[in-house]
Design a protein around this nucleic acid. Structure first.
Length: 502
RNA sequence: GGUUCCGUAGCUCAGUUGGAUAGAGCAUCAGCCUUCUAAGCUGGGGGUCUUUGGUUCGAAUCCAAACGGAAUCACCA
């Protein structure tokens, strides 16, 4: 009871005092050759949510993303566009920029496969040999070399097409309601890490082979030997990551650096952290790989090249459309302006999608069945949103003059259902801290569901406004108001908005 | 083959610092709208927590093995 009083009077209930810790969260980190898909959406929502949760735990949070804007993949799109694009632009075709570039990535793959098939048939060679002879691939590789050499026309083309992609991504991010404080571009960072290679060689942590390639031996730690620099002196993925880790630390001197990256890279991050430790980097221990499971479809994994991906923009559009039809069927749109309606459909549709992806433990792989659209009933975002709207409705309909909670409490005997609600509310800050510690937003998601469920139970059994006992009304108004506040705050930690009417 | 992760109801998931009859949602069956929004509520049926062994007063939870599934072990990123 006293806890409830302090909680209710605390405007920032749930927010922990500052820890003076600085945390960087890197998430999304897309390639610029294709649009975002459902897997990215899970990544992005996890990154956004854990950032909000860590803020609530009292940390200073820097949200960052590392755009993979260079490499052979983008060259493939560029080349295909040059060859088959006929000057198509997003403005002219009306196609979203990232989708347009993705289209040519697929075009490249088609043409490449056709070429291979042809070579195999005509020259009677193996697919492997055909791949080596592929002119298309050679052209793409040449384009990458030209890019690295700074050849003007290639750079111009690269800038233009990446620009299209960024416009597309910006629209998707806006739809998802996420932002970044800092964007790193791989085109600026891919050469970093060379100094780290020198450092490692000097310290004797790395070793150089006769062919000039540089390696690190991790067999003593139960891992393998790993190449860090090719014999031609160019760096590999992990080397770039070593350099980028240093850059991030130089920029922000953060205590913890979280990488929201799929669990297929578990090994990579183990190696990265170990190498940084061996190099004696002070920030090595602060690196945390927030590893999450893949989103699978009923017939297996999503593969961009095979077209078995669930496109992020399509999915968001479908969710909003089905929120619209469901809401209209229920006849809940009367009295709303067009603008309010659109906002409501958006809030509900995105709420359903976001909750669906965040309610499961990030570590676990999850199943998405496109045939069964995401539900709006039961353990879902809209259920929790609906609970909030119900409480708002009660508060709107109230006509009596409100008393302070202190006054309403005097001599008031709690009903068991009221007690349970208070107990549930009391858990809120504890759950946030747990979610932050475990790097697990689903803790908050499940908490919000339990609270909403508990409230609906209360709502079915007891009445707030229909009572002869004014003291009871006074107290229950405070109680349900607090439930609404906590639901709203919980959902905001997940990046989900809650409507006042639905 | 090595390493890592996973296996709980028909389906999707909670629960795992060891503790009482293992919980939700979906689906299914039976009820509840003249009463603060039925996107809701109540109840029924549905589980040898993959299997076997061990530790323990006590195991879904800890240990070992087996079986089943996934990821990874690239001079790709």
């Amino acid at each position: 009871m006293n806890e409830f009083l302090t909680a209710k009077n605390n405007a920032v209930f749930g927010q922990s005092p500052t820890t003076n810790r600085k945390v960087m969260v890197e998430y999304s980190s897309p390639n610029t050759n294709k649009p975002l898909h459902l897997g990215h959406v899970r990544n992005i929502l996890l990154g956004h949510s854990i950032s909000e949760i860590l803020k609530a735990c009292g940390n200073e949070v820097i949200k960052s993303t590392l755009v993979n804007d260079r490499g052979i993949h983008i060259c493939k799109s560029m080349l295909a566009w040059q060859k088959f694009g006929n000057g198509e632009t997003p403005a002219r075709s009306g196609l979203k920029g990232d989708h347009l570039v993705g289209k040519y990535y697929v075009e490249f793959d088609k043409a490449y496969k056709a070429e291979i098939k042809n070579l195999v048939a005509i020259e009677n060679i193996s697919e492997e040999d055909a791949a080596k002879k592929s002119l298309l691939m050679k052209e793409a590789q040449q384009m990458l070399l030209d890019w690295e050499a700074g050849k003007l026309d290639v750079i111009e083309l690269w800038k233009m097409m990446n620009g299209w992609v960024y416009d597309g991504f910006d629209a998707s991010y806006k739809m998802l309601g996420v932002t970044f404080d800092k964007t790193y571009y791989e085109s600026n960072t891919y050469l970093l890490g060379k100094t780290a290679v020198e450092e490692g060689l000097q310290q004797g942590v790395f070793e150089k082979e006769i062919d000039n390639s540089v390696w690190v031996d991790l067999t003593a730690d139960g891992l393998d030997r790993k190449v860090l620099q090719r014999k031609d002196g160019t760096s590999v993925y992990i080397t770039q990551d070593i350099g980028t880790a240093q850059l991030k630390y130089d920029d922000y001197k953060m205590d913890e650096s979280i990488y929201v990256v799929g669990n297929e890279q578990d090994y990579h991050f183990k190696v990265l952290q170990l190498i940084l430790k061996k190099l004696g980097k002070p920030y090595a221990d602060g690196i945390y790989h927030m590893s999450y499971g893949m989103v699978e479809l009923p017939n297996g994994k999503m593969k961009s090249r095979e077209g078995t991906v669930v496109d992020a923009d399509d999915l968001m559009g479908e969710m909003i459309a089905s929120a619209k039809s469901t809401t209209e069927e229920l006849g809940k749109v009367e009295g709303l302006s067009e603008v309010e309606k659109e906002k409501l459909f958006y809030t509900i549709g995105m709420g359903a999608l976001k909750y669906f992806l965040l309610k499961v433990d990030p570590k676990k792989k999850m199943l998405f069945n496109p045939a069964e659209s995401i539900d709006f009933h039961g353990h879902t975002g809209p259920f929790i949103q609906y609970t909030h709207a119900r409480i708002c409705s009660i508060l709107r309909k109230n006509t009596i003059t409100r008393q302070s909670l202190e006054d309403s409490l005097k001599g008031y005997a709690l009903h068991p259902l009221e007690k349970k609600l208070i107990q549930e509310i009391y858990l809120f800050p504890i759950k946030i801290l747990e979610a932050g510690k475990e790097h697990n937003p689903s803790v908050v998601a499940n908490y919000a569901f339990n609270l909403a469920k508990e409230f609906n139970h209360f709502y079915a059994e007891l009445s707030v406004l229909k009572s002869d006992n004014e003291k009871e009304i006074q107290f229950r108004l405070h109680l349900v108001e607090m439930v609404a506040t906590v639901i709203k705050k919980s959902m905001l930690l997940l990046g989900i908005d809650v409507p006042e009417k639905m």
